[in-house]
């Protein structure tokens, strides 16, 4: 039952866009929304960034699909954290990227 549920989400999100991948990786630990752009800059060594609209579109969609949770405190600070569903989708994407990366190495591209 749970596996079917995860599979539905995996089918929906795979293959992942860069924006979705970076958003999901950025929330692996609880993080305030205002800190996410800095986290993405750190993850990509300042080579890639997401526009605010793109970031919040992904946060909104993934929260609705329960890939992450959103907590809002009394100061209206939004904190996001990945869920088990989000981790499952991320693992599926990791395996996909690993396969592609293996091809790149094997073919010495």
């Amino acid at each position: 039952m749970a596996e079917n549920f995860y599979q539905r989400l995996i089918d929906k999100y795979e293959p992942m866009t860069e924006a979705a991948f970076l958003t999901l990786v950025a929330v692996r630990k609880p993080i305030k929304s205002e800190d996410i752009p800095a986290k993405i800059a750190e993850l990509t060594h300042n080579k890639l960034q997401l526009g605010l609209g793109t970031l919040f579109t992904n946060l909104h969609a993934m929260t609705k699909d329960y890939l992450m949770t959103e907590r809002v405190d009394e100061n209206d600070v939004h904190t996001y954290e990945i869920t088990g569903s989000g981790e499952s989708v991320l693992v599926a994407e990791r395996d996909r990227l690993r396969l592609l990366s293996g091809i790149i190495e094997a073919e010495q591209l």
Partner: peptide
């Protein structure tokens, strides 16, 4: 952005 997302986008979120 959709109208629902637009309501969530903050006025400022460094570096934007």
């Amino acid at each position: 952005v959709t109208l629902a997302v637009a309501a969530e986008v903050p006025a400022a979120s460094a570096p934007f």
